[in-house]
Amino acid sequence: MTWNWEFAFEIFPEIASAIWLVIGITIGAYIVSLVLGLVLTFARRSSFKPLAYLTYGFIEFVRSTPPLVQLFFVYFALPAIGISLNKYAAGILTLGIHYSTYLSEVYRSGIDSVPKGQWEAARAMNFSKIQTWFRVILPQAIPPVIPMIGNYLLVLFKETPLLMAIGVGEFLQEAQLIGASNFRYLEPITIVGLLFLLLSYPSAVLINKLEQRSKLGFGTRKN
């Protein structure tokens, strides 16, 4: 059995039609992780120690357990305590929460790299806490880590096939169904791989460029 072009062309539109679903899930999960990541960052820096430790524990726990099991937990186990989500919401939420822990680390590294003098200056100018964060610290902390933040959009995109485990009809699920009904897996799964390459490689190159540019910009400003 070798590659069959006719079959490949026939099934390509079927698999590719899932693209909007995949993009929707990716963007949804990305928004969740961007916002929740910032919340986690703040909670971890909280001066109320129990909250800070609890957040730290949560981040470590979520980061080091498999997203697949977390997905099952959200989709199958949470209904037992009255939280019922449909498969799309469960998928978006799980991926979003999982990667929010990564993004909180990215934010943290950005915040840690803001020189201490900036905090002291903000205090000397009698800025309120909100002013300090939103006018002084975050505007300096976020831009240098933008490429890293952008990178997680790609990572999330590549994690979406996971959702086939709860029956979300993304690329891989479609390919699997086609494969099972035709007893030919080579073409459908290869097409899925090519689709991922086609969509993620150009974006990776773009982010790489962005990274080099931002390094340039911030390098000169620091000197």
């Binding site: 494969g179 991922f196 490689y201 990776a204």
Partner: peptide, 22 residues
């Protein structure tokens, strides 16, 4: 780039389901 640009699950399925074709 090939392995970083596609997802692990897709690679796993490819090796398990598509390689038998060869």
């Amino acid at each position: 780039e090939l392995f970083r640009g596609t997802s692990l699950l897709v690679q796993l399925f490819w090796i398990y389901f598509a390689l038998p074709a060869f």
